[in-house]
Simulated scan of single mutants.
Amino acid sequence: MLTVKQRELLQFIDDRLKASGVSPSFDEMREALELKSKSGVHRLISALEERQFIRRLPNRARALEVIKMPENAVSAAAPVIGTIAPALRAQVQMAANDTIEIPLHGRIAAGTPIEALQGTEGFAVPAALLGPGEHYALEVSGDSMVEEGILDGDFALIRKVDVAREGEIVVALIDDEQATLKTFRREGQMVRLDPANRMYEPQRYRPEQVRIQGRLAGLIRRY
């Protein structure tokens, strides 16, 4: 028998996979379930794996597969409103085939920073992938975030914010000229932008050099 939080997480993963084919990130799972840390997500994932509701796909960062659902589980078409966290409730209430068009602002480097983003094409996104707030999309260029499951050619869905919390994956504009997708950290008086690929080194900047342009809200991958 699953706990309430285990059920919530399993439902969230299943709905996200059905909507986009891509597993949610640990930060997205933590936020959706209103957990204080990613360690809580890891414990829930391990419990679901032990009970054979999900499995981790080998050689793919962050990739999960739902093997089965509880007999009384519900999908996004019929959510149990009273038993799930508000952030998760807002997502599962949306039908997976509803789409929203958001701006597509060119390509962003997941490796070395590139020139500031340009372009304002439209990009259709499943509504279930977006929470509250204003969003835009970026095409990922590079491989420095592969260990977070962010691959070259993916489309990153970014929620517009101008502040970042420790450990969030953000779009950072460097010296008002170059933009990059990295994990935000503070290191003493400096801002550190961490890659998720051991082949790359962290990037360090003075706070006045860095402007936060948004944080990662989801991913879309085309095959």
Rank of each mutant, 00 (worst) to 15 (best):
N59G: 11
F184G: 03
I158L: 12
S37W: 03
I81G: 07
I100H: 12
R55V: 08
R60P: 07
P24D: 11
S25N: 07
A196Q: 05
I150D: 02
T83C: 07
Q203N: 12
R107L: 09
E208P: 08
R56P: 02
A90D: 14
M69Y: 06
G21F: 10
I81R: 13
I13S: 04
I67L: 14
E28L: 14
I84V: 14
P24L: 06
R222F: 10
R89A: 09
N72W: 00
R185F: 09
L17N: 03
S144M: 03
Q91Y: 12
D194Q: 15
L2K: 06
V171N: 08
A32H: 09
G40Y: 11
G214C: 07
E121N: 13
I45L: 15
D162L: 12
A90C: 08
T120F: 14
D15M: 11
E177C: 12
P79Q: 02
Q118I: 13
V210R: 01
E201G: 05
G122R: 13
L35C: 03
L35G: 02
Y205I: 04
D27H: 12
E208T: 06
V4E: 13
D15L: 09
K38L: 13
A73F: 02
R107Y: 10
A87P: 04
H42N: 15
R7S: 04
A19Y: 08
A127S: 13
V146I: 15
R16Y: 03
D152S: 09
E208G: 05
A109G: 10
A90G: 08
D14M: 05
K38P: 05
I212C: 06
A76C: 15
M69V: 07
M145E: 02
S141K: 09
V22I: 14
K68W: 04
A109V: 01
K160V: 15
S75P: 11
V80Q: 09
R56D: 03
I13H: 02
V146E: 15
N197E: 01
R211C: 08
E115S: 05
R60C: 05
N72C: 01
Q213R: 13
R89G: 02
P202A: 06
G21C: 10
E50C: 04
S37P: 09
T180C: 06
I108K: 02
L157D: 05
G122E: 05
G149S: 09
R7N: 03
V146Y: 11
E168R: 00
V146A: 15
R165N: 15
K18L: 07
G119F: 03
I150R: 10
D176E: 13
T112D: 10
A116W: 10
A63W: 13
R206P: 05
L193K: 04
A47G: 01
T183N: 11
F123E: 14
A77F: 07
S39T: 10
A110V: 00
A172I: 04
D98G: 07
E139Q: 03
I102Y: 02
Q178V: 05
V170D: 05
R43D: 06
P207D: 07
A124E: 14
M1K: 08
R204G: 08
V74A: 13
A85W: 00
D175R: 14
F26C: 11
D152K: 04
A96R: 15
D175A: 12
